[in-house]
Design a protein around this nucleic acid. Sequence first.
DNA 1: ACATTAAGTGATT
DNA 2: AATCACTTAATGT
Length: 212
Amino acid sequence: MNQSIKEILQQNFPTILDTGLVEGISEHGVYKEVEEGDLLMDIGAKISTIPMIVSGSVKVMREDEEGHEILLYYLSKGETCAMSLTCCMAYKRSEIRAVAQENVSMIVVPVEFMDEWMMYRDWRSFVMNTYRMRFEELLEALDSIAFLKMDERLLKYLDERSIKMNSKEIPMSHQEIAVDLNSSREVISRILKQMERKGIVKLGRNKIQLLT
DNA sequence: ACATTAAGTGATT
DNA sequence: AATCACTTAATGT
């Protein structure tokens, strides 16, 4: 391997500094790459490792009673999966499904070290931070649903995607976006058309370009 | 050229 | 805002 886990950690998880912790992750963590579309975790599966994302993005979703998928969040560089953490601490099976949205590289660490690593301040704050971030996101999502109309939600969604992917171009179909927002394809298409007329976006097949 | 999939649109609830 | 039914456009084979 061209780069040690230690180096990858320093570059992508700068808040993890404690030497004992870095040693632990280096020793027990495994560097892994997966391709776009790969299933990383399914509902009901037992969780044996925790992913720490180095590059790319991962879509994390839940399923409702009728089997409809509901988007929870996207993970990107420097982040880990809050749901995996809760599940493994409670020895529960996975309640989520995770799919690689782009090619993803990550460090996976076995769950059995979670308890032990809690003695490190850096690990505690890393874990707490990922909870805090998700919780804030959850609150935001909640009032976005309660107070924003679909067009505002869509614009917000596009902005967020663009920031996460580091590009003004969002390579997604209207259908995919509709699923993420629990809306329908036609509604998304119509709003996007309006936005295009207003000069906010430029539309293409399977892609949306933000002009703002 | 043809089939398939994405996107656009009007009508209805 | 969602759904249906249908059209049109883009893309793969």
